[in-house]
Design a protein around this nucleic acid. Structure first.
Lengths: 143, 143
DNA sequence: CCCATATAATTAGTTTGACTAACTAACTAA
DNA sequence: TTAGTTAGTTAGTCAAACTAATTATATGGG
C-alpha cells in the first residue's frame, strides 16, 4: 500500500478521477451536443435557473463566451431566457423540457457505462466508492 | 445514508469527480498553457514517448488535430519529434525538459490546491479516498 | 438630485482547437 | 509487383475561447 499523506492521496485521486471521467466521456456522443453545451445544460438542470454571469462563472468562461453559447442553446430550443424582474439588466436562463430531456439522455448514457462497471464491484467496494464520493464533494468546495 | 446499488453509486461518484476536478482546474492558469496542450503533455510525461496516432487516441481526438497540436508544442520547445527507426512513416513524440518542467508546474498547482484540502481530512478519510482511487482506476478500464 | 462608477449582457474581431477530405510516403501481403 | 492499409500532414471549415468596446441599468457620494 502506498503512502497516505495528503499529497500522495491527492495525486492518486486526481489521476483516477481524470481517467474515470475520460472513459465516461465517450458516451456523450449519443446526444449530438458538444461538451460545453452539455455541461452548461447540466449546470442549469442541477443548479436551477440563473443569470448569464452566474452560469459563466460556474463554467469558468467569460460572459461573452457564455452569451454566445446560451444564444445557440436558445436557438436549438434547449434553454429559454427570461427577464429578471428585479434587475432589468439581468437574465434568468432556464432549461426547457426539451433541454432537460436531452441532457438527461446524455447523463443516462454516461451513467449506464459507469454503472455496468460499478455493478461488477463487491458490495463493500461500492460502499467505499460511495463514501469517497462524499469526500470528493468536500474537496470541491473551498475551505 | 443513500442507497448503495450500482446506479446510485455511479451517479454520486460521477458528480463528485466532476465537481472536484472542476475546482482543481482553476489552477491550470498558472502555466499559461491551454487545457489541450497541458493534457497532451501530461499523457506524454506519464505514458512516455509515443506515436502521434497513439497520442491522438489517448486524447480522444483525430490525428490531424493532434498533428497541429504537437506542431505547436514543438514550436514552443515543449516536445520533440523523432523518427521511428522501425517504421519510417512513424514518429516518436517525446517531452523536452522544458515541457516536462512546465507540465510539472501545472500539476503541482493543481495538486497543491487539492492537497491543502485533503490535509484537512482525517487519516481514516484519506485512506478511504485512496482506496476509492484504486477503484476509480478500475472503472476507467473497459471490462 | 445627479453624476461617477460599477455591473449585466451583447457585439465585433481574433485565436485556438476540433472536424472531414484529400494527399504523400511507406509498409504488407496476395 | 501491385493493391490495399497505415502514419502523418495539409487545407479548409466551424465551434468555442479570449479581449475590447458598447449599451443599458443600478447604485452610492457629494
Amino acid at each position: 500500500m502506498a503512502k497516505d499523506d495528503a499529497l500522495d492521496v491527492a495525486e492518486r485521486v486526481h489521476k483516477a478521477a481524470i481517467r474515470m471521467l475520460r472513459a465516461a466521456r465517450v458516451a456523450d456522443a449519443t446526444t449530438g451536443l458538444s461538451a460545453p453545451k452539455l455541461s452548461a445544460l447540466s449546470v442549469l438542470v442541477f443548479g436551477g435557473a440563473m443569470s448569464l454571469s452566474a452560469l459563466a462563472k460556474a463554467e469558468q468562461v467569460t460572459a461573452p463566451t457564455m452569451s454566445k453559447l446560451v444564444g445557440d442553446l436558445e436557438a436549438e430550443g434547449l434553454v429559454a431566457k427570461r427577464a429578471d424582474k428585479a434587475d432589468k439588466r439581468g437574465l434568468r436562463i432556464e432549461v426547457t423540457a426539451k433541454g432537460r430531456a436531452l441532457m438527461e439522455k446524455g447523463r443516462q448514457a454516461r451513467l449506464a457505462l459507469l454503472t455496468a462497471r460499478v455493478a461488477k464491484l463487491s458490495r463493500a467496494e461500492r460502499a467505499q466508492l460511495d463514501a469517497a464520493a462524499a469526500l470528493m464533494l468536500k474537496l470541491a468546495v473551498a475551505a
